[in-house]
Every structure is written in C-alpha cells, then in structure tokens.
C-alpha cells in the first residue's frame, strides 16, 4: 500500500473517533454484540486497505506487514472505547481480533494481486462484485425499495454475508451474525488464494520476500521487481 494511501486510510478510520471527541457524533449503546466504533473503523480499513491497487507493484512481505500493522492501534482503541461505552463494560475483543486479521488478509490479497495485471483484474472484479457490490445491492433493496426485512430474498442475505464490509456494518449496528463471520473469513481466504494463484502463474511479479512466503521451496522465487518469464 502506498504511503499516501496508508495515511489517508489512517485518517479516515480515525474520523468517527475524532468526530465523537469533538461532540459532532454520538454513538449509542446498541444491542449486546454491537460495537459501533470498531465497526466503523474496521469498515474504513477493510474498504481502503483491501481496494484493488492502482498500479502494478511487486509484492513485498515487509511492505504488506507494515501497512497491515498500521490498522492495529486504531482498531485496538476503537475496541477499548466500545468496551468503556457499553453498559456491561466488556470490550469486543473477538470482533477486534477478527477485524485486524480481516484487514491483514484484505491487504494481502490486494498486494499479491498488484504484482500482475491479470491478477489485478481478477481481484478487482471479485472485490468490486462481492465485497462492495453485494452490500450496495442489499442497501438498494432494503432502503431504496423499502422492502420489509422479512421479505428480502434469502439468497441476497446469504450472498451478502460473504462481504467483509457487511460484517463490519453488522458489527457496528447490532453485532455480526455467525453467518457473516464465516462468510467474511471464507471470502477473504478465497480472495487471497485466488490472488496468490494468479500471481504464481507465468508472468507474475513477486518480490524476493513475497516469493519466499508463497513458495515452500518447490518452486523457485523470482527476484524483487523482476518480471516473470
């Protein structure tokens, strides 16, 4: 992730907490599992850290790890503030850890896919359709057409639970359902697998450390920034 994009994401994720700090926003205590601050911070990180990369870049483990770690203090603070603001006083640690892992996986998939144009296109299409498109479709059906929740097609609810953004939205609103946890984890794992497979095909560009991460020794790693054959 480019340093400018990282700074922008960091600032955007802090916006809900800063708005609350200056009295422009107030988070209400929701039902049991709701964590509004964590949900909103995670939503920003998942949306921006996992977005398809603008330009082709060789994959470097250290770059990815350093970028993913930038989310951790913000998510940790949101978690702690949610815990302090909840009637029971319990911080939503499980959701916080999941959010941190999901941000790391989202960024991993994007960084891996950025190593090769074909992988970038596949990743971009998958990310736009599933992570962003499905929740937007859900919002359009629910809010746009004012369909009662019970009348929503079941398949749409099911598909939506694959989106990490939907998971973050549910965490912020009323606590995520078990289906959303499993769906988001499965989607992110699949996205990483697809990005890695696409990158490892001939023509992929993987940095030295990235090659070491992906290859277990059977296939030789390519040099940093060196295009594949």
């Amino acid at each position: 992730m480019h340093i400018a994009a990282l700074a922008l994401t960091w600032l955007a994720s802090l916006a809900p907490l800063l708005l609350e700090r200056f009295g422009a926003l107030e988070f209400a205590a929701g039902p049991g599992g709701a964590a509004p601050r964590l949900g909103l911070c995670a939503l920003v990180w998942l949306a921006l850290a996992g977005a398809p990369r603008w330009r082709e870049t060789p994959f470097e483990v250290r770059n990815w790890w350093g970028g993913a770690l930038a989310a951790l203090p913000v998510l940790c603070l949101a978690c702690l503030l949610d815990g302090a603001g909840s009637p029971a006083g319990k911080a939503p640690w499980a959701a916080g850890i999941f959010a941190a892992v999901a941000v790391a996986l989202s960024a991993l998939a994007s960084d891996l896919a950025a190593a090769r144009p074909a992988a970038r296109r596949v990743h971009g299409a998958l990310w736009l359709a599933t992570s962003l498109g499905l929740p937007l479709l859900w919002v359009a059906v629910h809010w746009g057409t004012r369909v009662a929740p019970a009348a929503t097609p079941a398949f749409l609810d099911f598909l939506c639970s694959c989106s990490p953004l939907q998971w973050a939205f549910e965490v912020a609103r009323e606590g995520a359902s078990a289906r959303s946890w499993i769906g988001a984890a499965a989607f992110l794992t699949a996205l990483c697998a697809v990005a890695a497979a696409q990158t490892r095909t001939p023509g992929g560009r993987i940095g030295a450390a990235g090659g070491a991460l992906l290859d277990s020794g059977a296939t030789g790693s390519r040099g940093p920034g060196v295009p594949g054959p």
Binding site: L17, R21, E26, N63, P73, A84
Partner: peptide, 28 residues
C-alpha cells in the same frame, strides 16, 4: 453525552499519531 465512557483524549491521539509516524517511516 456518550454515557460516561472515556472519550478519545489528546494523549490517545498523540500515541496514535506517533506510532503511525514510526510505522510509516520504518515500514520495511
């Protein structure tokens, strides 16, 4: 407002900013 939980203080913002600056500079 806010039901009495501690809000985000300046010291928290300072910690976040300092850590981000270190992370950005030493990402590798």
């Amino acid at each position: 407002r806010g039901g009495g939980g501690p809000g985000m203080s300046w010291s928290m913002l300072f910690v976040l900013g300092a850590v981000f600056a270190i992370q950005a500079g030493r990402r590798r």
